[in-house]
Amino acid sequence: MEHLSWNRRIYDRGLRALLYLCAGITVALLVFMIGYVFYRGLGGITWEFLTTQRSLIKGTDGILPNILNTLYIIFLSMIIVLPLGVGAAIYLTEYATNHKLLSIIEFATETLTGIPSIIFGLVGMLFFQQIMGLKYGILGGGLTLVIMILPTIVRTTQESLKTVPQSYREGALGLGAGKWRMVRTVVLPNAVDGIVTGCILAVGRIVGESAALLFTAGMGGVLHNFADALTTSSGTLSVALYVAVNERGDVQTALAIAAVLMVITLLINLLAMVAGSRLKNK
């Protein structure tokens, strides 16, 4: 008895140390990653870097166009994918009754979330440019991203809809609410958290995407307004980073871009969280 509990205690301690180690390594890696990028990159961020475009004539080397392009493409993709994905998820979880078809669709979306992004880029290029006749630009790139992240949004929204207790639905229907009123008043408000998480994941993928955009949005680094950028080759920050390293071997600029990217991601996630809690409390 004594012996057993002694063993047990050692086992417990050992296990706890192991888990502690896992957590420690995870944190250390993250801190190292972020620290390294900021340490090497922040130095390259100057006012000029953030507010000008790269121009050999003026001798400036800035990334303002890429920052804007990134924001443009986030805006365009999200404004399309959010209603589309959330709407599809609502239909699939709350309305659809054909369970066989439903599980096929769920399997398909699941599979689509795992497809390498370069394939979306390839198909996006072939479809939007060669068949639909779009030019390189935010529009073609944004639509490609919509297709790429749609499954993510649908899946995360569906998952969060499924966590809403059935008893809320029964309660609403039992009081004579129609289906849509039930969805709007007791289902969606309780699924907001999951939808926000889905959006954060989606924005993360957009911001980090380069492969799917090289063929569709292009690499352009010239300043344009939103309307012009739609159909003009426009590189996002990630693409600019790729170009900086790959075509100019300019690691310093790449690291500075990386630091900017991380700040932007952080800001957008914070924004999404604030928006989410606002929506929820309403």
Partner: peptide, 14 residues
């Protein structure tokens, strides 16, 4: 359902 109301086994306030 407006005329025939239901109270469930487990309390389910929204």
């Amino acid at each position: 359902r407006r005329h025939v109301g239901m109270v469930f086994q487990k309390p389910n306030p929204f």
